[in-house]
Amino acid sequence: MKPLRMLGRSVRDAIKSVIRNFSLSLASISCITITLIIVAVAIIASFNVQNFTQEIEKDMTIVVFVDNDAKEEDVEVIEEEIKAIKNVDKYTYQTKQEVKAKMQEESEVFKTVLDTWEDDESPLKDTFQVKVKNVEKIRKTAEKIENIDKVSTVRYGEGMVDKMVSAFSSVEKVTYGIVIALVIVTVFLIINTIKLTISARRREIGIMRLVGASNITIKLPFIIEGMILGLFGSIIPVLITTYGYLAFYKHFDGYLYSRLIQLILPEPFIYQTSLIVIGIGILVGMIGSASAVRRYLKI
């Protein structure tokens, strides 16, 4: 009961003091808000990038083109050699006729164009479609297959994914830099806010010490004040995250640019992100106030 009573008292004091130093509190809250908006966007972006790179990697296939002059025995040899490679998970073989039929199924345009080609003048080739066990080693596996006689390989999707991931990761790095800088500025603002509160309450603190308040009792209201600033600062970012992502998801129908880039379902993703944002807000507030208490509250 007693700790609860003291906590209630601390929260009451903290809220009072947020209101009393309203302008400085507002500055701290705004700074936290801006920081957290960027943090939220960074979280959403990086989780989505992670998600779709994983999805793409799952689908990643090495397409092995067999040279046109290869005979049936050659194809068998190629098949044996592919089978022998450790990283190969499974593979399918399609003759150029099958490839043609499949492509014609996919699109009207292909159908009419491909219909005009006879088998011997068709630019299509017999193909193996190889799935690998470990996507990270896909390049090596592809190289091994490429070395087989009468074969030319192409890894598709890979180049684009690589570029996209590296573009996103550099954007991510810049974002992290900005976030760190903003967090530092925010922490300093909070330190100053709490410093002001401490000096405004110097007399009260002195009396508290005289009458035997424990150190934690004296410190707690200031630390809670910082946490409240963080909490208030996370309100707008949470709203932006929740409604912003919902609108974004709806606008793009769950896909970005192509079917390849699938967005994460809003639920429960937005709630998790909101919790992370609130957590970071409170944590930043606490770090700021704790260091102010350590610096300016000599007890």
Binding site: K2, M6, I207, G212, T217
Partner: peptide
């Protein structure tokens, strides 16, 4: 009362 509140009295 402040003196007693500070030490968590009921």
């Amino acid at each position: 009362a402040f003196a007693l509140e500070c030490i968590g009295e009921k």
